[in-house]
Nucleic acid binder design. Structure first.
Length: 282
DNA sequence: CAGCGCTTTCCTGTTT
DNA sequence: CAAACAGGAAAGCGCT
C-alpha cells in the first residue's frame, strides 16, 4: 500500500550532518564563486550516466527536471505523466513524439536527449545557457531504483521516425524557446519544488525529509532545520530557519499546493496544484 | 518606475 | 517548557 521503498535510504551514522550536506549536496547545490550563480547550478547534471538508454524512470525524471531548471522554466508547465518511461523508451521517441508529449518544450527536450544520445557528453547549449563538461563530480550514485526492466509502456504516441530525425535547426529551437516558454519563476525553483526535488532524489537526501505515504503525497520533515539551512543556501540566505520556511509552507495551503495535515507535526501533503511528485499525477 | 508573485521576517497567540 | 502550528502584517526581491 505504502510504497516508500525508494524513499528510504540509509545514511552512514558516522558522518556529521554538515558533512553529509556538503558531500551529498555540495557540488550540486552550492555556487561557490560564480557571480551569476548559474554555471554550478546548471552544472548539477546527469554527469555520471551519460548514456540515457540505460536510465531508469527516475533518471528520466531527473533529466526532465534538470532541463527545466536549466532553462528556468516552471516544472508545472510540463506534463510529467507523458514521460512515465525509462531511458530506453525515451530514446525511442521521435521529434514528433516530443512535440506531442511536451508541446513547446518538445524541441528543447529533444535536442537535449539527442545530444546526450549521440555524444555521451552533455554539451547542452540552449538559449544563453551552457553546461560546461569539465565539471566532473565523482559522486553520482543513482542506484537504479525499483523499476524492473521489463516494465511495459504502451506508447500511444509512438510514431517512431524512420532513419533520419527531422532535426530542427538550433536557431529554430532557440526561437521557439524564447517566444513561448520564457516564464517567471526565478532559477526554476520554488520552495515546494525544492522540497519535492529532495524527496525525488533519495540518493541525495541524507534523511532530511521522507515520504510518509508516497501515493498520497504525504511527507515528513526529519531534520527541519537542516532543510531550512539547505533552502537558505540555495537562496543565499544564511539566516533561514524552519520557522520562516514553515511560514512559506503555510501560504501554500491557500493555493492548494499543499494540503493541511493536522495533528501531525512536521507533516505536509502535496495538494492538487503540486506537480511532478509522482510518476503519473493527473 | 509600477505592479505582481513569492517569499522572508517578525510577531502574538495557540497547540502539542 | 520547548517546538510546532497559525496567520496577519509588512518588507524584500526578482521579473515583466
Amino acid at each position: 500500500m505504502v510504497h516508500q521503498s525508494v524513499a528510504v535510504m540509509s545514511v552512514t551514522p558516522s558522518t556529521t550532518l554538515d558533512s553529509q550536506l556538503t558531500t551529498i549536496w555540495g557540488p550540486t547545490n552550492s555556487y561557490p564563486d560564480d557571480p551569476t550563480g548559474m554555471s554550478s547550478y546548471t552544472g548539477r547534471l546527469w554527469t555520471c550516466d551519460s548514456q540515457p538508454q540505460f536510465w531508469s524512470k527516475y533518471q528520466v525524471w531527473e533529466w526532465l527536471q534538470q532541463v527545466m531548471d536549466m532553462n528556468q522554466i516552471n516544472t508545472s508547465s510540463i506534463p510529467f505523466q507523458n514521460f512515465d518511461m525509462d531511458g530506453h523508451q525515451l530514446c525511442n521517441l521521435s521529434y514528433q513524439d516530443f512535440i506531442h508529449a511536451a508541446g513547446s518544450m518538445g524541441p528543447i527536450l529533444f535536442q537535449s536527449i539527442t545530444e546526450l544520445k549521440w555524444s555521451g557528453q552533455y554539451h547542452v547549449e540552449i538559449g544563453q545557457l551552457e553546461v560546461k563538461p569539465e565539471l566532473n563530480f565523482s559522486i553520482c550514485p543513482f542506484p537504479d531504483v525499483s523499476y524492473p526492466p521489463g516494465e511495459i509502456y504502451d506508447p500511444l504516441i509512438h510514431t517512431l521516425a524512420p532513419a533520419a530525425y527531422p532535426t530542427p535547426s538550433t536557431l529554430d529551437i532557440k526561437r521557439s524557446f524564447s517566444r513561448q516558454v520564457k516564464k517567471h519563476n526565478p532559477r526554476g525553483t520554488h520552495l515546494w519544488e525544492f522540497i519535492r526535488d529532495i524527496l525525488l532524489n533519495p540518493e541525495r537526501n541524507p534523511g532530511l525529509i521522507k515520504w510518509e505515504d508516497w501515493s498520497e503525497g504525504v511527507f515528513r520533515f526529519l531534520k527541519s532545520e537542516a532543510v531550512a539551512q539547505l533552502w537558505g543556501k540555495k537562496k543565499n540566505n544564511s539566516s533561514m530557519t524552519y520557522e520562516k520556511l514553515s511560514r512559506a509552507m503555510r501560504y501554500y495551503y491557500k493555493r492548494e499546493i499543499l494540503e493541511r495535515v493536522d495533528g501531525r507535526r512536521l507533516v505536509y501533503k502535496f495538494g492538487r496544484n503540486a506537480r511532478g511528485w509522482r510518476e503519473s499525477d493527473k
